[in-house]
Simulated assay, not measured.
Amino acid sequence: MPKPSPYAAQLAGSGIRAIMERARRAPGPVVSLHIGEPGFPTPPHVGDAIAEAQARGETGYAPSAGLPALRDAISAKLASANDLALRSERVVVTAGGTQALHLGLTVVLRPGDDVLVPDPGWPNAGGIVRLLAARPRGYPLRKANGFLPDVDELARLVGPRTRAILVNSPANPVATVLDGPLLERLVRLAHERDLWILSDECYEAFTFDGPHVSTARADPDGRVLTCFSFSKTHGMTGLRVGYLVLPEVLAPLAVRAQEAMLACVGTPVQYGALAALTGPQDHVDRARTAYLRRRDEALELLRATAVPYAHPAGAYYLWLRVHTSDTTSFAVRLLDEQRVAVAPGRAFGDHGEGWVRLSLAAPAADLVTGIERLVAFGAEAGSSRHA
């Protein structure tokens, strides 16, 4: 029998999904703080637009790059919200932010290339790189540096095979937000070493201490590709719509690659995305306000404990320190014994070990209950180790 693809065979299962499946099988209710799922439903006007498109018979193929009206609306949004004035021809509509990243890496990577990815960082990014016969190389996000990229350290990690750098702001799982000067330094490094930058900005709507700044604002020569998503901002995770913004030289390649990869994103859901952009935005403001309130309540609770944490400046996560060298086992025991599900830090990379991720998208009462149980459980576990 022929052997399977070595690039697919090297993919590891998701540590987050493993906890998710275990939580689904658990007897009785579980306090679910492990899933990066928006805490609010899809807005009604989005669902209405999808239903109306279906009723009109808009269920055939769309252009591979996306509906022209949606691409125009995205271009207008980029100008108003991201301070990026660019033609809609540089936008490709994708099946969520995940496929946007896959498409972007597809048009810039060669077999054997290295991609510098955040560690801890979103684990799917490394999997996509591996599927493309390239190699993810983690760059550490350290507590001592506020879990922000150290540009000097990044520069030392660039080697002869390095082709691209992935940046994520607001960041999953560490909830940091990169400011303009830091992004300028990252883009300058990419320019000096002739690298591409893939900028994951899927949590752009949720910053708490300052504005979101798009990496492409610091891009003078067209080396930044940016991934956006409707999933987090508009509560549309299951509808799978995102978009990739490319330099002009790459946009035609991405359209052709999208045709080969996907043909097109579903036509009715593209009309839903159009309604999400052009319709009422109060649901986004409500979600941001709720996540901020939950963040502040959680931090007030944590300040009364000895649990270290990373200050969450954006996204909707809490990154907490736990006293263990095996966060996977810790998360399993916390679920089995306390009925609290958290994402183990090891799932996000080697430098995630010793930390766990909690979701601020969970109901406020669940968040408080989960933190209280986690703190008590951690104290008991620490006592038993030193007994």
Rank of each mutant, 00 (worst) to 15 (best):
P160L: 00
P160N: 01
P160E: 04
P160Q: 04
R161Y: 00
R161E: 01
R163K: 14
R163I: 05
V167Y: 03
V167S: 14
N168P: 00
N168H: 14
S169H: 03
S169L: 04
S169W: 01
P170L: 00
A171P: 12
A175I: 02
T176Y: 05
L182C: 07
L182I: 08
L183V: 04
L183N: 02
L183R: 06
E184H: 07
R185L: 06
V187M: 10
L189K: 03
H191R: 14
H191F: 03
E192A: 13
R193I: 00
I197P: 11
I197W: 05
L198G: 09
S199E: 10
D200A: 12
D200R: 08
C202V: 15
G210C: 11
G210D: 05
H212F: 15
H212S: 06
V213H: 15
A218P: 01
P220K: 08
P220H: 12
D221I: 09
C227Y: 01
F228I: 06
S231F: 12
S231K: 07
G235S: 13
M236E: 03
T237R: 15
T237M: 10
G238M: 08
G238L: 10
R240Y: 13
R240G: 13
G242V: 01
G242P: 03
L244V: 12
V245L: 15
L246V: 13
L246I: 12
L250W: 06
P252A: 12
A254G: 12
R256N: 11
A257E: 15
A257L: 01
Q258K: 11
A260N: 07
A260R: 13
C264N: 13
V265L: 10
V265Q: 08
T267Q: 12
L274V: 04
A275E: 08
A275H: 05
A275T: 03
A276Q: 06
A276W: 04
L277I: 09
T278A: 04
T278D: 06
G279W: 03
G279H: 07
G279F: 08
P280C: 03
P280T: 00
Q281S: 14
H283P: 00
V284T: 08
V284N: 02
D285M: 02
R286Q: 14
A287D: 10
R288V: 12
R288N: 05
T289K: 11
T289W: 04
Y291F: 08
R293P: 00
R294S: 11
R294A: 07
R295V: 01
A298D: 02
L301Q: 11
L302C: 05
L302D: 04
A304V: 05
A304T: 15
A304W: 09
